[in-house]
Design a protein around this nucleic acid. Structure first.
Lengths: 320, 320
DNA sequence: TCAAAAGTGTTATCCTTACACCCATGT
DNA sequence: ACATGGGTGTAAGGATAACACTTTTGA
């Protein structure tokens, strides 16, 4: 259990060899007006983050501390996303290691963000190709030929075929179905093919309206990881409710799920699903706020979290 | 992005305030003769691990290095499990932080473990209550009354009810179904109720045959996390094949899944599932090794990994 | 009266579950 | 012959997908 310390290679900053900087970094999501929003700081290109420090009782409390300090926003639901060694900080010249532990947090926007230097942005500003609620987004018409071009540009035939296949699966080319959970794979393909800003080069980068708003370091990659995780998770665990107000209409619930998934859902089937799984109960009141007939208000049945170790909520997608 | 460094509180070991030790730690699993096995070092109570060091190109390669060095066993499939701050090393007296990044690795036992100080043990030695392949294990008859006793021992009624409910869900009391994925929750309950060795106290600890073999620090908790993850993952991603030889019979495949899940599976339905999802193809050869009629040999269709972004493999459990 | 949204049924189809049964080999 | 495991078929029930249709409000 005790491993001998390696000798310090380059004495910079008086680090012992087996110590590293540890950063906590948060993807904070809320949904407002059917738009999935991300909490950012700076020029909307940076995720809230900060070093894990001595005074933190735990990793999670450290994260809460940093987010609250930088944005004034208190966090509710938190789950760990991924831990990675920070490539960008291990430059060839600086011999110091840094790791980042990323988290996904769900809240509601209402809680006033006190601080100044922060704000909410739709996550589709960073990933315009991910929103399929109004059909296949036009940006894909621009990205598709570029991706194919990249695939065909490989030197050997094997790589070409492999690239074509990866792109076709990730983006649903050649009559394949769109799979909303492949957000990370899509980002990685666009990165590899140098179609987005972070990939350096920049020669082939399309305008931001097509390739999306860039972020600092690998923050956009972390966001992609968060989106993918959330899109997968809503299908088998009732986490959507973390994003809802205490009472809501069924259509509001549906719109929220649609916002996250980036796809439209069939209304009657969605309702049946929700009711059948006993995820909600009526409050007795109705809402008149929306255009038409007043809607019944519901609240989340917290009991389901105890009741069973839930399976649930597959998406009844609307047909193309 | 640059956070001001906090002043060092207690100058021990010349650490800057926002640096920490980082350990890599591996749950290495193989299945032999229908028994799920864990690779350990020392007295079979320690997982392979080591510090993330300067010379490591990445977290994963660091992990591979340590495991190979400590056990002589090369790793194939690896996935990250969880990152946590090491409570046991943040004693009140020592002000230094340590974090552990844990991984799940799948291999086959054949690859000779060269090193001396290591070996394979069935993971059910550590969790005797997790193996339901021959019906409800007898150890549960001993643990159940103890858990109930613990629940009833709470001071206020709310806590009592909550404890009863948690125990009932996790262990399937009161006609609830057993859910094999709740391995971690079960471990945590036994820890809280001080029925296992690591929880200190030791007054109420049952003999190892009941409460399972203990491990160093929080290694057993990490193992529980790994088991839970694997049991959940085999249902929607074809990872079992990482544990199989290149060619195998369908019953061997079934027995492997059963070993991991700790439950029996219905044969005809399992076969239909595997074939229908086109996970395997016949090799053309047959195996005479087993008692009865020769069995067709199959191999994994690696194409499925490309073909689709797979959904699959839910378990067709045998009925109680 | 019309637009907009709420809300209810109904059907065909597929997947899952639970069984029952036959086949090929060694002893 | 029989034990052991390999392997196939089928019928019932439930979930899902795809629609069509009615109801209630505000403008």
């Amino acid at each position: 259990m005790d491993h001998q310390a390696k000798g310090t290679r380059q004495g910079r900053a008086a680090l012992k060899a087996d110590e590293a900087k540890v950063d906590l970094i948060a993807v904070v999501v809320a949904v407002n007006d059917s738009e999935p929003c991300l909490l950012t700081i700076g020029n909307a290109d940076t995720l809230p983050s900060g070093p894990y420090a001595l005074e933190h009782r735990s990793l999670q409390s450290g994260l809460r501390g940093w987010v609250e300090q930088q944005t004034g926003h208190p966090l509710g639901y938190i789950e760990q996303l991924y831990t990675f060694a920070d490539r960008d900080r291990i430059g060839a010249e600086r011999q110091e290691r840094a790791i980042s532990i990323s988290y996904l947090a769900l809240t509601r926007k209402e809680q006033a963000t006190g601080s100044a230097n922060c704000g909410w942005r739709s996550w589709y500003e960073y990933f315009p190709w991910e929103d399929h609620r109004s059909g296949t987004p036009v940006v894909l018409d621009i990205l598709r030929p570029r991706l194919i071009e990249w695939a065909e540009g490989a030197s050997d035939a094997t790589t070409r075929r492999e690239r074509r296949q990866r792109a076709a699966i990730a983006f649903g080319f050649d009559d394949r179905n769109w799979n909303e959970e492949l957000t990370l794979q899509r980002y990685e393909l666009l990165y590899e093919s140098a179609l987005i800003e972070e990939a350096g080069g920049g020669r082939d980068v399309a305008p931001a309206a097509v390739s999306g708003k860039a972020m600092i370091a690998d923050h956009r990659r972390i966001l992609a990881t968060g989106i993918a995780r959330l899109r997968s998770k809503i299908k088998y665990r009732p986490v959507v409710f973390e994003l809802m107000r205490p009472s809501f209409t069924l259509l509001q619930l549906q719109r929220t799920v649609e916002a996250l998934a980036g796809r439209l859902i069939n209304k009657p089937n969605f309702r049946r699903l929700v009711e059948q799984q006993e995820l909600v109960e009526e409050t007795g009141e109705t809402s008149l706020e929306t255009g038409g007939r007043p809607a019944k208000l519901y609240r989340f049945r917290h009991a389901v979290l105890d009741d069973r170790a839930v399976a649930g909520t597959k998406l009844p997608l609307a047909r193309a």
